[in-house]
Amino acid sequence: MSQLELDPVTAPVSPPRRAGRRARTSAFWLALPLAVAAVAVFVLPLTGLLPDGGQNLDATRQPPAFLAGGSWAHPLGTDKLGQDLLTQFVSAGRLTIVIGLVGALVAIGPGTLLGLLAGYFRGWVDRVISILIDAQLALPFILVALAIIANRGSSLPVLFLVLALTGWAVCARVTRAATLAIRERQFVVGLRAAGASEPRIVFRHILPNLAGTIVALGTLQVGTAILVESALSFLGLGVVPPMNSWGSMLASGQDELSQAWWIAFFPGLAITVLVLLVNLLGDALLTHHDPRKRRR
């Protein structure tokens, strides 16, 4: 489950030079297909264009339309109960995208907050939070996550708890460093001299200045969340029937690999493309907001 881990050194890998300017346009072209895909999985079921998703024991394990033996009645084929895979694929995609977004939010939210607090107040607040960050990054927390699931059973809330626990630290570390840098900027001193309260400085001035970086980290976190979810669901520890995500489709495809490989093929491909686009977008945004390239 190597993709389940968090890099202990997810220093944003230094982006190619000269890329700052181009980043904005490339971000647009990366966001576009993502938006189209997201809209598609939500709108397609409403159009009535999708095949009927019910069981049909006369048409089990049909290959996709473009292979010998396939038909356009089931463009992506059918599973072992004759259920249409395209219909499943679309509804599973919906859950996958939602989990990716929510999973990123639950990691980025607390991560940002803790990073801000540590960076701004320093002292013992920073010491405690830094120990937690170090602990999270220095430990195989995915095992702890598995232990939580073993303990609490699989459900969406537990999944989000796991995604939050495994994802917050990278964001907290970056936010902490950025906050430490910004709090030394002189406008913070100026605001203090004008009588601004500490919470005001943190939330009205430092946070907005971090927004770009946080959005970029959040984007990358969407990719991580989707990968973590897919692995957990694959092992039967994340999304479990009757709910369906691309990860849980991979789980049902695993048993059918020798007879109907296409059950697992398309969801896996979709995850790969989705995460690749999200990672490219995150990298582009990060380049754009790289403090070294800012200073506009």
């Binding site: 489950m1 190597s2 993709q3 990719g223 990968l227 897919s230 692995a231 694959f234 990860g247 991979l250 495809g253 695993q254 690999l257 020798s258 490989w261 697992a264 093929f265 896996g268 995850i271 790969t272 995460v275 690749l276 999200v278 990672n279 490219l280 990298d283």
Partner: peptide
């Protein structure tokens, strides 16, 4: 390289099984 960090590796493994074993 980015693709390698985006693919669910266990799925990649499954596809290797399909191709090279099955």
């Amino acid at each position: 390289a980015l693709l390698g960090q985006s693919v669910p590796v266990f799925w990649f493994g499954m596809m290797l099984v399909v191709l090279f074993a099955v």
